[in-house]
Amino acid sequence: MLSLSDVSVNYGVIQAVRGVSLNVEEGEIVALLGPNGAGKTSLVSSVVGIVPVSGGRVTFKGEDITRVPVEGIVARGLTLTPEGRRVFAGLSVAENLRLGAATRKDPVATERDLNTYLDMFPILKERYHQTASTLSGGEQQMLAIARALMSAPTMLMLDEPSLGLAPRIVDRIFELMLEMKKSGLTMLVVEQNASEALAFSDRAYVLASGSVVYEGAAKDLAASDQLMEAYLGTGVA
């Protein structure tokens, strides 16, 4: 579904991503792991068009989207929930969700999706008319995911959805992701929380200093303490 070949991202003279090739098939959850500063956020940001791709090619559903602007990529059904959630704090939950669906033309389906996600994230229904700034971190993360889903994507990239959240909430969010998988959504998940992420992913890529150092089935990586230790330094954790 999504395919990167030899993608690089530069900030001035600094090369954050060096020639990464990566594939995500339809219906998969793929984990993108690696330590801080490995270039994970740069990579997903460049895929969605927030930062320019300096080299290589990105294709989505067989179409080259390397130079397509953000809006166009989202319109093609690929979106991202950015790191740190970035909900619109001054707007209400309802307004945040409405913005997510701002470009949709089918009011009936939009309404149906809204109800689906409000059932999926009951807390958002409860706080529907509150300002987003009054939500807790976990609630904001759910809002960010629901907001992204409102644009009816076929593939969602999540940048550190567990960042700064309590373990119980992290579990809940990962559960929700499995539910979304069942409804046919393809996902690429950037995580530092490697062992947790591997538990629900199909495949995994490990990024270090901007390059892919490992790719394979999630359970192989999770099963091997040596691999975990070598690539992620978290063999025991």
Binding site: P69, V74, T79, R86
Partner: peptide, 24 residues
């Protein structure tokens, strides 16, 4: 209106507004 909401949101975080598929 959606345009108005987008303007308010863009005042805080334009990148995420674009991530909603809304044309800058």
């Amino acid at each position: 209106t959606n345009l108005g909401l987008a303007m308010r949101a863009a005042a805080k975080d334009f990148t995420v507004v674009r991530l909603m598929g809304i044309q800058a």
